[in-house]
Amino acid sequence: MSRPAQTARASLVVVGAGPRGTGLLERVAANAPELYDGRGLDIHPRGRQQAQADGKG
């Protein structure tokens, strides 16, 4: 399966991930070069405390 060429880095925001979410994040990070065609991946963790501080949790 071919994907269109893109130059921008991909971003992934994780909100309130527990052990299962952490495992998923590890799998995504390990496969990022293949999933995102080598563009790179920026991962932004957002914990429950940060979301609550922003009034969104």
Results as ranks from 00 to 15, higher is better:
R3A: 11
R39V: 03
V14N: 00
Q52N: 13
G55Q: 02
R46P: 06
A10C: 09
G38H: 02
T7I: 09
M1D: 06
G18K: 05
Q50N: 01
V28E: 02
G21S: 11
R46Q: 14
V14Q: 01
G16S: 13
T22D: 15
R9L: 12
L35G: 03
Q50H: 02
E34D: 14
V15F: 15
V28Y: 00
R39D: 02
G38M: 06
V14R: 00
S2V: 15
G16P: 06
S2R: 15
V15C: 15
Q6N: 13
Q52A: 13
P19V: 11
A8P: 12
K56V: 09
L35W: 10
L35Q: 05
M1I: 11
Q52S: 06
L25I: 02
G38P: 06
R39G: 01
E26A: 13
A5Q: 07
I43C: 00
G16C: 11
A51F: 14
V13T: 08
A5P: 03
A53I: 08
G40T: 11
D42M: 09
G21Q: 07
K56G: 07
A30Y: 03
S11N: 15
E26N: 07
S11I: 03
R46N: 12
L41C: 05
R3L: 15
L25T: 05
A32G: 02
D54S: 07
G40E: 10
G23E: 13
A32L: 04
D37F: 00
R48G: 09
A17R: 05
I43W: 09
L41P: 01
A8I: 05
L12V: 05
R39T: 01
S11E: 09
G47H: 00
A17C: 08
S11T: 06
P19L: 12
G18V: 03
L41G: 01
T22E: 15
R9V: 12
G38T: 00
R27F: 05
R46S: 14
L12F: 03
G57T: 08
D42A: 12
V28K: 02
E34T: 15
G18S: 10
E34F: 11
G47Y: 00
G18M: 07
R39W: 03
S11Y: 12
E34N: 14
G55M: 09
R3Q: 14
D37S: 08
D54N: 07
T7M: 08
V15Q: 14
R3E: 11
T7K: 13
G57N: 06
L24Q: 10
D37K: 01
A8Y: 13
A32W: 02
P33W: 12
L25P: 04
T7N: 04
V15T: 03
L35F: 03
Q6P: 05
A32I: 12
A8L: 09
Q6F: 13
S11D: 11
R9W: 06
P45V: 08
Q50L: 08
Q6S: 12
V14G: 01
H44S: 10
T22A: 15
I43M: 02
G23F: 09
P45L: 04
Q6C: 08
A30W: 01
Y36Q: 04
A17D: 06
A32Q: 01
P45C: 07
A10T: 11
L24M: 14
